[in-house]
Each structure stands twice: as structure tokens, then as C-alpha cells.
């Protein structure tokens, strides 16, 4: 019974983490229709920015966190300005965009490794162990609870933004028909730039929280991206609600899967779920 409680908690933590990745991933996909691999490395950018400002420069943790979030947002925004928007104007195919984003991902990941070494590091080296809350004999750390709460708030915030603001309606219009969006006066390139900033900032938040929970490594982006992309596809790519549903479904399947199977097979579970969906329900849970 207690074991089940712990599995549920672990599933929720995983689902919340993936949600933080899918939100931005789907937001960008919705507006641009390309699978943005670069999204993954933004988590690492968020984590390392906080690491750099707290450890190397020695700035207050909260300030560093804000800088980390904005930093990830800016890096995503600049990648769009200099790479993706340039390609969009040249009418590059989605495959070209995909490859370009993968290339940019690898380059930035290499830069992070050169600057910070490829070692595993923790953002804070606090001596005292993290605060832990107990639910029966199951446990959740302070940071893990924060991951769940942040995922909840980010999801809500983004849904409200899209539903009730002119910006949100413009994003949906662009997602429906970019040319007509231009015709009615929407500067689509500018709006897509904002979309990259917002989506990337949320990826930064994910990276920072993961960094606090387990630590950071330049290569952390790939694992995060693959989980997030899988959750998005399961949910219905480009659909925010689908991404959230897919994230939690994946979180539960993975964590209950390793109940009976050794945990090094978690990746195999993830991709089995992906393949099953691709075969039987390629449009995802939330059909678009």
C-alpha cells in the first residue's frame, strides 16, 4: 500500500516534469509546425545559468533563478531570430527546420560542456539534506513538491494566456493559417518570437527544477527532450492539454512499469509506449 503511494508520488513528479517540457514544445510546434529539438538544451541553459550565477559569481539564489528563466527564454528567442525565422522566411521545409534545431542543440550543448565541463554537478551544494514531507511512509522532497506546483501554475497560466488575451488568439490564428493571420495585420514573425521566448523560459524553469532535484549535466537536455517529445506525441502534438495528459500518462506508465522491471529499462518502457501510440493512435489522445 505504502509502496503504491510512493509510486503515485513518483509518477506525479515525472508527469509534472514532462509537462514543463511539453508546454513550450507544443506552444512552439503549434505556431511554427516544426519539431524543435533545440527546446531540450534550453533546460540545460536554465540550469547552468543558475549554477553560474550562484556558484561562480555568488549572486543571491532567487535573483539567479529569475536570470536563469529569462536567460533560457532569451536564448530560445535569439535562436528563433537568427536561425529559425531566417529559415522560415526562406520557406525552408519542416525537415530542414528540424535538422537545424538539432544542429543548434548539439552546438550549444558542446559549448556548455566546454565552459562547465561535462561533469555532473549540483546547483546548490548545501550541507543540509533537502526538506522532506512524509505522506504515510511515502516521501516527497520540497523541490519535488515545487515541481508539481510549478507545472500546475505554468499550465494554468499558459492556458489562460492563450484563451483570454489577444496575444493568445493571435497565436491560435497563426497556428491555423499563418498567411491569413498576416493579412489581418498580425506581425506573425514578432508573435512567434514571443512564443519562443515564453516556451523557452518554461523549459528553463524545468531545467532549473531538475537541477535542484537531481543535478545538472550538459547532456541533460536530450533525455528531457525525448521524454517531453514522447509525451507530446502521445497527447497529440501541438495541443497543450494533450501534452499535459500525455506527460502524466507517461509518468504513470514509466513509474508503475519499473515496479516489476529493473529501472534501467525505463527508457524501453517510454519508447514502447511511443511506438504503441504511433501504431494505434498516431494523432494522440487529444485528436486535433
Amino acid at each position: 500500500m505504502d509502496l503504491i503511494m510512493q509510486f503515485i508520488i513518483n509518477s506525479l513528479i515525472a508527469g509534472a516534469t514532462y509537462t514543463l517540457v511539453t508546454l513550450g514544445f507544443n506552444l512552439v510546434y503549434g505556431a511554427t509546425k516544426f519539431v524543435n529539438m533545440f527546446h531540450g538544451v534550453l533546460a540545460a541553459v536554465g540550469g547552468y545559468t543558475v549554477f553560474f550565477f550562484t556558484q561562480t559569481i555568488g549572486i543571491d539564489l532567487w535573483v539567479s533563478i529569475i536570470v536563469g528563466i529569462i536567460g533560457a527564454g532569451l536564448v530560445g528567442f535569439l535562436a528563433d531570430r537568427f536561425i529559425f525565422s531566417t529559415l522560415r522566411i526562406k520557406k525552408a521545409s519542416n525537415l530542414v527546420m528540424f535538422i537545424a534545431s538539432l544542429g543548434a542543440f548539439i552546438v550549444l550543448q558542446a559549448v556548455l560542456a566546454m565552459v562547465f565541463t561535462s561533469q555532473f554537478q549540483s546547483i546548490v551544494h548545501s550541507v543540509d539534506s533537502p526538506r522532506v514531507y512524509e505522506i504515510g511512509s511515502a516521501a516527497i522532497t520540497h523541490i519535488q513538491l515545487l515541481i508539481i506546483i510549478t507545472a500546475l501554475f505554468s499550465s494554468f497560466g499558459l492556458v489562460l494566456l492563450l484563451r483570454f488575451t489577444m496575444f493568445g488568439k493571435a497565436v491560435k490564428a497563426i497556428s491555423d493559417d499563418e498567411e491569413v493571420a498576416k493579412i489581418i495585420g498580425i506581425d506573425t514573425n514578432k508573435i512567434i518570437g514571443y512564443v519562443f521566448f515564453i516556451g523557452s523560459a518554461i523549459a528553463g524553469i524545468a531545467g532549473i527544477l531538475i537541477g535542484f532535484d537531481t543535478g545538472i549535466q550538459p547532456t541533460m537536455g536530450l533525455a528531457i527532450l525525448l521524454e517531453g517529445a514522447t509525451a507530446s506525441i502521445i497527447g497529440g502534438i501541438g495541443n497543450l492539454y494533450g501534452g499535459i495528459a500525455g506527460s502524466f500518462l507517461l509518468g504513470f506508465v514509466e513509474n508503475f512499469g519499473i515496479w516489476k522491471i529493473p529501472s534501467e529499462w525505463k527508457g524501453a518502457i517510454t519508447f514502447s509506449v511511443l511506438i504503441i501510440f504511433l501504431i494505434f493512435r498516431p494523432q494522440g489522445i487529444f485528436k486535433k
Binding site: 489577444m166 493571435a170 491560435k172 490564428a173 491555423d176 493559417d177 491569413v180 489581418i184 498580425i186
Partner: peptide, 17 residues
């Protein structure tokens, strides 16, 4: 080419962007 993801009213709203 109406925006199918938006309601009739929202189509008009973005029409007045």
C-alpha cells in the same frame, strides 16, 4: 480560410487585431 480553432466571435476579434 476562417480560423477553425477559434469561435465565430474570436474570428471577428482577431479580424480587428
Amino acid at each position: 480560410r476562417v480560423f477553425t480553432r477559434l469561435t465565430v466571435e474570436e474570428n471577428l476579434e482577431v479580424g480587428g487585431f
